[in-house]
Design a protein around this nucleic acid. Structure first.
Lengths: 256, 256
DNA sequence: CGGGACTTTGAGCAAATTCAACCATTGTGG
DNA sequence: CCACAATGGTTGAATTTGCTCAAAGTCCCG
């Protein structure tokens, strides 16, 4: 993983023909994939590498929305906070995800590092200019946005109409499926975020999350190898428990 | 309002130079606005007028996503249903809203008429073709999508972290603000949807919604002129009650 | 090995739900 | 034109789910 040399340099790359993207592990998953190798250079021309320590913010709610990010490594959380401090995590980002979609002049949420992050930072303005030459880029962004919209609607169903156990089951299955998309193991999940983070994402308290984990473990549906590593032992039952079971089982998924 | 003659014709318009859009009341609010009058014809060439009766579906979850709609008149609800029948309404659509954004080949939700609907129906495929010639159209769609994404995140905060009263207060303020955008009265709100619909949108039961309405009325914050017509009497207190109060008060809004 | 942060577990509580009854509005048929 | 059924809305009492508060346990890191 000799990518390390680039990661910690927060300076701009220009005219680097043997681009750092060539070695990028998420290149074929994220926006860059829509450009053929010959054109990726126009992206590398405007990209900066950014690295963020756990707990630090990539940006805050209300900051001018100047950049778009591609998460290359790590896990980030999207937070919105009410006046009295109640917090909601509207989502988590994993490698290949695009961070910072916003139409407004400011970000509508904060983005914080759960683990150390490595990000590609694109100035929104210059990216916009590239859209003219490469409309395929904008199309890709639109696809990402509509996919996020669909995910947001699923999350609303979860928040508004599912029980605590169903929420946790759904969350675990979603993470598992996203891990699969990144070609990681789907049965052994690494959960970098705290129980508190999970609670703020599912509309529950830390304690409720913990109790639901315990219940799933006692039912033999998952095992808790460590606080942040769980193993899915009975995917079918987890699916039924998630409340979306029964008719949302695609054969391809159910077969696993 | 001599638009009526067109509204009930579910047939395609072709080569109609004096386009129906000329008289459209939402034209300057929706996607059409991004094209100068000379180019609107390319939209009228592919549009169909559709009219839907209350309770009927525009499309169902799982239907092939063949069309994009612009709501010209009426109110629609977006529904997702769990296997056991629990329903979530992820949003309501009002005139000028775009319906049917989806990247998938099928719709991820159903869209049902709350009141009688008049819609412009665009075949997704042909619209896609127009994007090449008029990239400004795609840009507009992207803007709409990211705006919806921001709204979805606000709704997640509401669902996951607000109390029943805060939910209802937030909902009323949101509807009021959207009415304002359509240049309708902001203090006297017409709520076409049922208490049950509101409950399914806020993650509450019909009874809880009703109780919260009663409480707001008894506190003198709103008046219930009819079951579907409410008047906002004390906007400031409603704002504080919505939980987003205090620091989300924009001067322009607070001044009203 | 010790300290701090995070997690788990327990007991009591409260907000919202469920269940049930009643009320209001509307539309229909006699 | 009125009676009445049907639908939707409101109100009340009992229940439950998940929350709050409290304490003990665990893990990680220096």
């Amino acid at each position: 993983m000799h990518r390390g040399t680039i990661l910690d340099l927060p300076k701009r790359h220009t005219g680097d023909v043997q681009s750092p993207c060539a070695a990028c592990t998420v290149r074929d998953l994220s926006i860059c994939s829509v450009l053929d190798p010959a054109h990726v250079k126009c992206l590398t021309d405007i990209v900066s590498d950014v690295s963020i320590s756990p707990g630090q913010s990539v940006f805050y709610e209300g900051d001018p929305a100047e950049h778009l990010f591609v998460l290359r490594d790590g896990c980030a959380r999207v937070c919105k906070v009410l006046a009295d401090g109640r917090r909601m995590i509207t989502g988590f980002f994993f490698p290949s995800d695009i961070i910072g979609l916003a139409e407004d002049v400011t970000y509508a949420y904060s983005c914080e590092a759960v683990t150390r992050l490595s990000l590609c930072q694109f100035p929104r303005k210059e990216l916009q200019d590239l859209f003219v030459e490469h409309p395929v880029l904008e199309q890709r962004i639109l696809r990402v946005a509509t996919n996020e919209l669909a995910a947001a609607q699923d999350q609303m169903v979860l928040l508004g109409r599912k029980t605590a156990s169903e929420k946790l089951a759904s969350f675990l299955l979603l993470l598992s499926s996203r891990a699969g998309r990144r070609r990681a193991r789907q049965d052994e999940l690494f959960l970098p975020m705290s129980r508190n983070d999970i609670g703020d994402h599912l509309g529950l308290t830390t304690e409720s999350v913990s109790r639901c984990f315990t219940r799933l473990r006692k039912q033999g549906i998952i095992s808790l190898d460590a606080a942040h590593t769980i193993r899915i032992l009975d995917r079918d039952r987890l699916l039924v428990l998630s409340g979306s079971g029964d008719y949302e089982i695609e054969p391809s998924v159910a077969a696993l």
